[in-house]
Design a protein around this nucleic acid. Structure first.
Lengths: 297, 297
DNA sequence: TTTATTGTTCAAATATTTTGAACCTATTAA
DNA sequence: TTAATAGGTTCAAAATATTTGAACAATAAA
């Protein structure tokens, strides 16, 4: 016999353990006690292992029974999830979706996007991978990623891969008026600004994610949930950081925020996304659509 | 219906996929073709998902079918291991120890580690299996694995699961001085390097991992038992391959080995390990300790 | 000592799976 | 073009497997 353990047997075992007796398990499963007895005996026989010992009028799990039950529960869970994943796939939703992001890009806009995604579809697994320079490209051709957010303009068209430019963002180092850095010599050095508290956009997908792999190193100091909050925090003088120019143009003009040049800093971030044209998944569509909208930023 | 997917159905699906047709699967399973048909139809009906599409006179898996099969195989494996573990517990043996490794990671360091383990505790059965992207995470929550070696930095802390970073490894494509690839235009293309003989670290453990893995294709390869041997073989000009930078720094500087850039290659491999905090096993501790040591590499 | 609860056994009833023959349908060979 | 062949499906009958219910034994609680 290839698989002596059946799902039904595991289900029965689980019910017995939770309810405390064969009789109660029978009741829960809408079966008659003798059916439970039969299932357990069959399992013990097929597996050639004693799973219950009689203690008084009750049956108690043996050590082997406990191992079987504990691990078996994991398998039952996996089965349930597999059924869900399969159905999701059938209706066009990928069960897992992998995003690779070039590590030089800012993640400020990605976290809120993922958070938004989980609000809509909480049980799809999103994995974000950071890729170093050429890696993002490779990630897609080797099917490691479904969507790549890469740095630079769109690369030359490639067989089977679609590229699309994402809005170009100009980042600028910003502090509140009266901040001590406004007194420092310009341009500011990296060393100097790193001594100040940075405000970063937090990965808010943490709590809601079914399970998400996040793969970048960061040393956040003050985390906020979105770029809007980041602007507010900066204005309140809680810290310093880079902000997208187009979002703070007015405030800069009104003197509510001060922009300062920093040495060796790339200000303009051009990025593109890439995906396989054969991929018709709905999750992919969702992300492409969101990223295409000019105001998602 | 609580569990629409049965183990038998997964077994049938697996056989169909491996053998290529319903008829061949029927033959393998000592059943009649109509029985296979019946099982598949029942599964499709219970799950309310189309799993096969007819192409010509053959039946081909749909996307959903592929997801089901791929994940289902993991569950079948888990079932087999569970049966073994239960029997071992019954007979007083320590249960098997399962390690899941993310398939994008290099196995080079694992095989020698397992070999070392057998020197210390030869009676314990170690299973290594490969998990695709998110799967490694899942493997631990569902108890399919006792230890997971996953890609990326440590994920968000999770109830009952402990994560620990493993040393980050930078891999670099290396050849011996005077190798003909040193004359080629840089960066090297994948096609080009694939024409050369690769040196890979062999799976020298008893219970070998399911697949050979990760070498680009069925090219001529030379298997060696450890990374040290791999370095030696490379230096002798026996072949080419990726090596961890920190192990060959000196040799690169002395010109004993030549590093060459390859297009679209991810150079830096970050990884972490994960295990259940409830697991107090001796075997687990041994592996954690070994993997924590910086020089195990 | 009753009485209720728990688990087991066994034959009968019921449900599920497997079979084999007949029948499609798309490729391949003649 | 036609025949032969390699899948795949359908359906009723046969073979298996599971569930039931009644009778029974063992133990704890009243």
């Amino acid at each position: 016999m290839k698989y002596p353990i059946t799902l039904d047997a595991l289900e029965v075992l689980d019910a017995i353990d939770r309810k405390g007796s064969f009789a109660a398990a029978a009741n829960e499963l809408f079966r008659v006690p003798s059916a439970i007895s039969y299932t357990v005996q069959k399992l013990e026989q097929d597996l050639d292992v004693v799973l219950f010992r009689k203690e008084g009028r009750k049956a108690v799990l043996t050590q082997a029974g406990k191992v079987l039950l504990e691990q078996g529960r994991g398998i039952l869970d996996a089965m349930e999830r597999l059924a869900i994943a399969t159905k999701k796939t059938h209706s066009g939703w990928e069960p897992v979706f992998n995003i690779a992001i070039d590590s030089i890009l800012s993640f400020d806009f990605i976290y809120p996007l993922i958070a938004r995604f989980y609000e809509v579809l909480p049980d799809i697994e999103i994995n974000i991978y950071e890729e170093v320079l050429g890696g993002a490209q490779e990630a897609i051709t080797s099917n490691r990623a479904d969507l790549v957010i890469g740095a630079g303009a769109e690369p030359t068209p490639n067989q089977g891969i679609k590229y699309q430019k994402i809005r170009q963002i100009e980042w600028i180092f910003t502090v509140a008026p009266g901040h001590e850095l406004t007194q420092a010599a310009l341009p500011l050095s990296r060393q100097l600004i790193e001594q100040h508290r940075f405000i970063v956009v937090r990965d808010s997908s943490r709590n809601q994610a079914p399970q998400s792999h996040r793969v970048f190193s960061k040393r956040p100091v003050l985390s906020v949930p979105s770029v809007t909050e980041k602007i507010n925090a900066l204005r309140s003088g809680l810290g310093v950081g880079f902000l997208p120019v187009h979002r703070i143009q007015d405030m800069l003009e009104q003197g509510l925020l001060i922009a300062l040049p920093v040495e060796n800093t790339i200000l303009i971030e051009t990025s593109h996304m890439a995906w396989k044209t054969t991929n018709k998944g709905k999750v992919l569509r969702w992300f492409i659509e969101q990223l295409s909208q000019h105001d998602f930023i």
